[in-house]
């Protein structure tokens, strides 16, 4: 086990040296360990997408340092191809990621570039599409422009999974997915992380999925990491949430409102069952808090 991603005092300004210059990263500090699953959250425009685009070398550090698996991204001799194979990045906007005319070709693009034998490419495409929640048979010959919003996101995701990266970086992976697709995808991401020890870094506005998936959360605001901790630590800290205008899981929001009325509840209990138990405990004053049935 070691550190996979290490970011030190990273700064990034869009359209530098023009009247439209805009600083998006203002000294980011963070590190991610091998096999971790971390979430990056923060208000609109706080710099999340800009930050993670550095992880596979799509953006190069203007100032500060980014190291990925021991490689320094400022190194002029950086093996960018190797890096992209190691770190798979799924964009926030899937349309930025679909190039080929046919779905199957689009997903096959990465594996073909890696020079894999055709048989293996086909197997990977099938596997990646099913993992992303797309039927291989039904979808492989569909044109990429003739897809619904959610289908596009799934194709983009499949294209990256087909690379079988060591580090998976996802920008809003479930935006636009229907509830079942979201649940299935989250389950698979969890599987990659827990069973295959894939490192997962994801940006999300959905606090339910952040709470249930992430080992650790980084909170961004104005181009910096302003807080980090476990879901319980972050969501149990009202000040951080309010100050940086980040929401909490709906369960936590409800618990805060109940607490605000003077009832004693643990607001860190974000899982549905624990939140229900917290509420039951105040509805049955004599009962002891318990997660089991028949208290």
């Amino acid at each position: 086990m070691g550190t996979v991603i290490e970011v030190e005092d990273l700064r990034y300004t869009y359209m530098e040296n023009t009247p439209l210059a805009h600083q998006a990263l203002a000294g980011v500090q963070l590190s991610v360990e091998e096999g971790e699953c971390v979430a990056i959250i923060g208000h609109t425009g706080s710099g999340k997408s800009t930050l993670i685009q550095h992880f596979n070398g799509l953006l190069r550090p203007q100032q500060g340092r980014v190291r990925v698996d021991g490689q320094d991204l400022s190194d002029p001799g950086l093996d960018l191809k190797g890096l992209r194979r190691k770190v798979g990045l799924v964009f926030q906007n899937p349309e930025d990621q679909l190039f080929e005319k046919w779905v199957g070709d689009d997903v096959a693009f990465g594996p073909l570039k890696m020079g894999l034998p055709l048989k293996e490419v086909r197997d990977r495409v099938r596997w990646a599409m099913e993992m992303a929640g797309l039927s291989f048979e039904a979808m492989k010959d569909r044109p990429t422009y003739a897809l619904s919003g959610g289908q596009k996101r799934k194709v983009a995701l499949a294209g990256v999974l087909a690379l079988r990266p060591k580090v998976l970086v996802l920008d809003e992976p479930t935006a636009g997915l229907d509830p079942r697709s979201r649940k299935e995808l989250l389950g698979r991401i969890e599987g990659f992380n827990r069973r295959e020890k894939m490192t997962v870094i994801f940006v999300s506005h959905n606090m339910e999925e952040v709470a249930c998936l992430a080992d650790r959360i980084f909170v961004m605001a104005a181009g910096q990491i302003v807080a980090q901790g476990t879901p319980r630590e972050i969501f149990g800290n009202r000040e951080v949430l309010l100050q940086h205008r980040i929401g909490a899981p709906e369960t936590v929001e409800i618990l805060y409102r109940i607490q605000g009325l003077g009832y004693p509840v643990d607001v860190g209990a974000y899982e549905l069952d624990s939140a229900a138990a917290e509420i039951v405990s105040i509805l049955r004053p004599q009962g002891v808090k318990s997660h089991g049935p028949g208290i």
Binding site: H43, T44, Q92, E172, A175, G176, H205, M207, G247
Partner: peptide
């Protein structure tokens, strides 16, 4: 049409 899919909970509210 899913006009708030990329907004945070606050923004959505």
């Amino acid at each position: 049409d899913e006009a708030t899919s990329m907004l945070d909970a606050h923004g959505r509210r």
